[in-house]
Simulated assay, not measured.
Amino acid sequence: MIQYGSTDVHELLFASMRASIELRDRQWIDVEIQFELDWENGAALPDDVTELSALLICTYNGEIAQIVPQDEGRDCEFQFTESEKAQLRHYYEQSVKNQLLHKVEHA
């Protein structure tokens, strides 16, 4: 994680993830990903964050438009590193995208 305006980087490793999918409107689909951190490898939340999750804003064809960190369900002053985004993208592609596309088909 990188706090806006800071050069300090705290790399997080995610141990397990779960997602919820919500059709926001006719253009965007919100995928909220909750996760557990890999505490054994030294992962720790920044001091200013209490309940970190990720919001993936996706299109109706399943593409990720944006990945936003959230604290307690709201935007926060941090951003994910490229490695953290890669972990989230991988989980989405492997475990969520097909569910999202199925939900779109039946909407």
Rank of each mutant, 00 (worst) to 15 (best):
G73R: 02
G5K: 11
L100M: 04
E105S: 15
I2N: 14
L12I: 01
T50P: 10
A65E: 10
F14L: 03
E105W: 08
E63G: 07
V96P: 00
E32H: 15
E77D: 13
R89F: 10
K103E: 13
Q94H: 14
E51N: 04
D47L: 15
Y91Q: 00
N61H: 08
P69T: 03
D48Y: 10
N98E: 14
A65S: 09
K97E: 05
E32K: 09
F14C: 01
V96F: 06
P46H: 09
L37E: 01
V49M: 07
I29A: 13
L37D: 02
E40S: 13
L52G: 00
V104R: 03
C76T: 10
E82A: 07
L56R: 05
E72I: 06
L56S: 02
V104A: 06
D38V: 00
E11Y: 14
R74H: 11
D8H: 12
F35A: 00
Q87L: 14
E63H: 06
K97C: 03
H102V: 11
L56P: 06
S95V: 04
C58Q: 07
D47G: 08
C58H: 03
V9Y: 05
S16Y: 04
I29M: 14
I64V: 11
I29Q: 15
V68C: 05
E22W: 11
E72T: 01
A19M: 08
A107Y: 13
K97T: 00
